[in-house]
């Protein structure tokens, strides 16, 4: 079952992807197929099963509140596409 155009566009906007009309059409088709495929899980009775959220049998993995040296700013900003005054620069954020 195809996923509707409206839904594909909504998901794309949540994921910050921009799709052409053709891509919307194609992805609607493909995602629909995958959706049908993953919905085979509906055959499984899970009524009395807890979901595995964390695969390991571990808990409370904590560290002490101890300072570690930070990185040089140069290294932190090395890969930034645009920088200014020791900061990363982006177009004006509108609130």
């Amino acid at each position: 079952m195809k996923i509707t155009e409206q839904e594909v566009r909504h998901i794309a906007s949540l994921a910050r992807l921009r799709l052409s009309d053709d891509e919307v059409e194609k992805l609607g088709e493909e995602l629909g197929q995958i959706k049908e495929f993953v919905e085979t899980l509906n055959e499984v009775d899970v009524s009395s099963v807890d979901a595995t959220a964390y695969i390991l049998d571990k808990q409370n993995v904590l560290r002490e509140d101890e300072l570690k040296p930070s990185f040089d700013r140069e290294l932190i900003l090395k890969n930034a596409p645009a920088k200014e005054a020791g900061c990363i620069s982006v177009p004006k954020v509108v609130e």
């Binding site: 932190i76 200014e84 005054a85 020791g86 900061c87 990363i88 620069s89 982006v90 177009p91 004006k92 954020v93």
Partner: peptide
């Protein structure tokens, strides 16, 4: 941080 010179927004992490 708003940068008044360029009009851009600067990000301090």
């Amino acid at each position: 941080i708003h940068d008044p010179y360029t009009g851009d927004t600067l990000v301090d992490f």
